[in-house]
Design a protein around this nucleic acid. Structure first.
Lengths: 186, 186
DNA sequence: AGTTGAAGTATACGCATGTTTACTAGCCGC
DNA sequence: GCGGCTAGTAAACATGCGTATACTTCAACT
């Protein structure tokens, strides 16, 4: 009769794996794929370098695992369709000032370059952002409209990172609302 | 036996420098800062690696020289202010399908990550895009409005690179026109 | 208790990068 | 002609990367 195996074993594969995953989530979100090294992740997770390879195969595999573990944006898109544009605008306005609270968008904002993660980034952007939004749009051209709204999101983040943060004003939110309404208009 | 296939090039500091610059312009625009190596640039320019360091100090210095040499977007912004949004929309719609014709935007679209070029990217984005557009806007909040329009540009490019190209439809152009009108509305 | 297998470790491999050094050779003014 | 400045070259340097290997340690099960 075993006691519960879930608690505080000194050697715990699952816990170590989780520490690595969590460290990677944080670091990738903060600095993007290429700026973060496997050694940094291992150090932050207080795990040995070789374990990263052992549990995730490769750096790209770990990156994929991070992205797969992130939730979609369905919550943001849920609610009254009439006020969807406004909610998106408020969220985007906050993105002028601060990086996304969600690691997934932080990670997607950065890490454009590397070819080896291109596919997983693309897949995750589609399933976590485009498809959920698209599903909530009525009328024609839903994919195109969702894509354009997502483009605005990415663009806002790109400007913040490249030019600098900006405190969103009420006028900014109004403008963004109009922008998203234009994006989503059927 | 062949006589020399490659005819000797006269020694010309300025011409060599220009070849390197031109090769860098092309490669950075095609692949972004971090994907391009100094050796690739030297090979494309048919110049020795060391000359890159000699003439431009460093890879980042060369990148800065490329960006400094690019024209601004004033031409796109000139013309009837009434139809500015439409012109921007047509340009942006083309960006859904193809990378920018101008190396500067291609370069700015990519190369987000590297800290060592952050400053020159920022500076160039401001002086080549934001300021010229801002100068053509009347009414309040011109910087904020220009910034938002620029964000849409960057976002469109980001979506093309990450998700894939899209053939813009007339409806896309209409939507984008409305988006830019919302961005630029005073 | 002793064996065993996996978790964890230390270290090195192979490679690519940006950069620098020591050298060669061609052009120009004399 | 020729000497010297300098464009151009070849090679190495130093570093950091992701990954792989061989070893050690420890906990669980017979």
């Amino acid at each position: 009769m075993n006691p519960q195996v879930t608690e505080a074993r000194p050697r715990d594969r699952e816990a170590t794996r989780e520490r690595i995953l969590q460290a990677a989530r944080t670091l990738f979100g903060e600095q993007g794929y290429e700026q973060v090294t496997v050694r940094m992740i291992a150090a932050a997770a207080e795990a040995n370098i070789a374990l990263v390879g052992r549990y995730f195969g490769s750096k790209a595999g770990l990156f994929g695992a991070v992205l797969q573990g992130e939730p979609t944006f369905s919550r943001l898109f849920d609610g009254d369709p009439e006020t969807l544009a406004r909610r998106l605008a408020e969220y985007a306005a906050e993105r002028m000032r601060h990086p996304p609270d969600s690691p997934i968008l932080r990670t997607l904002e950065r890490s454009a370059g590397h070819p080896e993660i291109h596919e997983v980034v693309r897949e995750r952007l589609i399933t976590a952002v485009l498809k959920p939004l698209e599903a909530r749009l009525s009328g024609p051209d839903a994919p195109a409209r969702a894509r354009m709204a997502a483009a605005v999101f990415l663009g806002i983040g790109a400007m913040r990172r490249r030019v600098g943060p900006r405190d969103p004003t009420p006028a900014d939110v109004d403008r963004l609302t109009a922008v998203f309404e234009a994006c989503l208009a059927g």
